[in-house]
Amino acid sequence: MRILVVEDDPVLMDGLKVGLGLAGATVDEVATCADARAALAGSRFDAVVLDLMLPDGSGLDILAGMRARDDATPVLLLTALDETTDRIRGLDAGADDYLGKPFDLDELAARVRAIARRGHGRAGPTLKAGTLVLDPATLSATLEGRAVALSRREFAVLAALMERPGMIRSKGEIEERLYGWQEEVESNTVEVHIHNLRTKVGREAIETVRGLGYRVRGQQ
């Protein structure tokens, strides 16, 4: 799960990056409206956590801009103003959820998972492919009812493939999900993760489509 956090307070930003990282998300951080627009134009995110009061404008403007160009990326607003009218204004501007500061980190993570899930067109909390089940809330996986131990990165790769079972994901797309901008991407790491995953959940679970990428078979 790759998330863009737009927040200008350095301490809170650091907290969100680390906290959402603990919850299995890859976080990209920006502190201004201008940077947020650039980030949204350049990459795809599963969700955006948006502070309303930014040094160079209002988060609502970013939100309005996204919705105006049909960017349906789910957005959670973070704001110090949690009067009902402010919440209504935010939601009516196209936000998917709203959280007033200060908030509970676990609640924020759960809400981000929820809007990201909806963004992928899923209602259920878990990802399923055959007998393989992933639970993003606990970062746990089961195969035929038995728990499978996965590293955080492995979980992220598998989750990216299982969000749309049957769809092919390119290596680049998977890398984008795994790493924020600031992180160095090693050239063969996706292959390494796929290799490890196959030993844990079965060779046939992840199919290599030569020249295109990988896919997880849906219900058979």
Binding site: L16, L52, A80, L81, F103
Partner: peptide
């Protein structure tokens, strides 16, 4: 004022939870 007062609180709480 609300922003300036609540944002550091949110940061504190988040860091404490981490």
């Amino acid at each position: 004022a609300a922003h300036e007062l609540r944002t550091p609180l949110a940061g504190l709480k988040t860091q404490a939870q981490i």
